[in-house]
Write a protein that binds this DNA or RNA. Structure first.
Lengths: 216, 216
DNA sequence: GGATAATTTGACCGATTGGTAAACATTACA
DNA sequence: TGTAATGTTTACCAATCGGTCAAATTATCC
């Protein structure tokens, strides 16, 4: 007898792998723009190029699709912070963290917007992950920064708000892309704006955190 | 013969003023969380405490409601930037701009989220305003900052990205409030977090933009 | 090639969507 | 107070929503 839902099979078929990939790709397109409530299965089905019942064969509900997407995105989204090295040089660690986050905003803007949409709606689907794994990771890295400040390697500052400010400034170029382009005008809306942003942000954070000399 | 829609009347009734206010207040509640597509007239009607056809008597369509709301919010949202004074002291101007923006994130988070939602969706309803009045205002203030930098009053920096970074860091506390609370934990989720943020951000921007002494 | 499992589709369901029509109630004003 | 304009509600509409079902099609494996 046939098992009606692919999700329940033991071994994943080649077709399953492929189709689920296509679906999640389409779902990312749609969810990242309209959020969960504002997106429809029909929209996703159209982008994915398959029928709605066919989508629902792979993901039983709209929620399941969103869930799978969020889980995947959340993991890769934290990669740059995980790579933040306690043993590295503070200045270059912060510098390369900013670079990595900015690269992600440039290369994966949909993922950033999906996450932003979820936050705006009060994180109804991921609050547990925020309070659990996310908080744990941030706590760990915040402690690293605190030690750097205590040892005089960087200026004293609230490590949590430092992390928030790096998040917000970098993700801004993905989430508020339309606004950035509108303000910069068409002549500065090429990919070069990410380089400009990188230069500015590195200056801001590095100078802002540098220990001040007697003339500072 | 009766004019069927209040919007077409010449003089605004007392009832019109009151009801439209109530509706926009309710619409702000709903739109700021779910975005345009994700919000329903029924939701807004329920929050407003009136029937759906009654809502539609004051605003003919969901779009009209959203439009009215966006127009109002966009104007007040730019107040702090308008107040940015070219003749003031650079350091204290930037400092108070950050404070004002942070106060707005604290006191009007729904307005911030409404705006963020619109940006995430690609600004389908306000792209003209972004390219027009918003860009004009930013251009003007960016020129002020550029002159300050040229005259050696602050460090050289890209004025547009400076403005972007102030926007993003301050609005973060409204738009990503859930995340901020989750990471800081319940013990630091009181209103004090805005004071902490203000202290941190002022340090970051003022030190980051201060002209460096020979030991900097 | 045939049996069996996996995949796809069209037809359909009840609930909800944005919005309307017209009857009804209330207000403002002479 | 009467009446015309304004405001409110009930009932309703077609379209779309998330999701189901059974039949049809395709892939897999002996």
């Amino acid at each position: 007898m046939a098992i009606p839902r692919a999700a329940k099979t033991q071994r994943r078929t080649r077709i399953q792998e492929e189709k689920e990939e296509i679906i999640l790709e389409a779902a990312l397109d749609v969810f990242s723009v309209s959020g969960f409530r504002g997106s429809t299965i029909d929209q996703i089905a159209e982008v994915a190029g398959m029928s709605k019942p066919n989508l629902l064969y792979y993901f039983r509900t709209k929620e399941a699709m969103h869930r799978a997407l969020i889980d995947r995105v959340l993991f890769t989204w934290l990669e740059p912070l995980r790579a933040f090295d306690a043993n590295g040089d503070p200045e270059s660690e912060i510098r390369s963290y900013i670079r990595r986050k900015l690269e992600m905003a440039r290369d994966f803007p949909r993922e950033s917007r999906l996450f932003a949409n979820e936050m705006l709606q009060g994180a109804p689907h991921v609050e547990d992950e925020l309070r659990g794994p996310l908080k744990a990771l941030v706590d760990e890295k915040a402690e690293v920064i605190r030690v750097w400040a205590r040892n005089g390697k960087i200026a004293k500052c609230d490590p949590y708000h430092l992390i928030f400010s790096i998040w917000s400034t970098t993700q801004h170029y993905a989430d508020f892309d339309v606004q950035v382009r509108a303000v910069l005008g068409p002549e500065h809306s090429g990919e070069g704006r990410f380089e400009d942003a990188a230069r500015y942000l590195e200056q801001l954070f590095v100078d802002g955190l540098r220990i001040r000399g007697p003339h500072g």
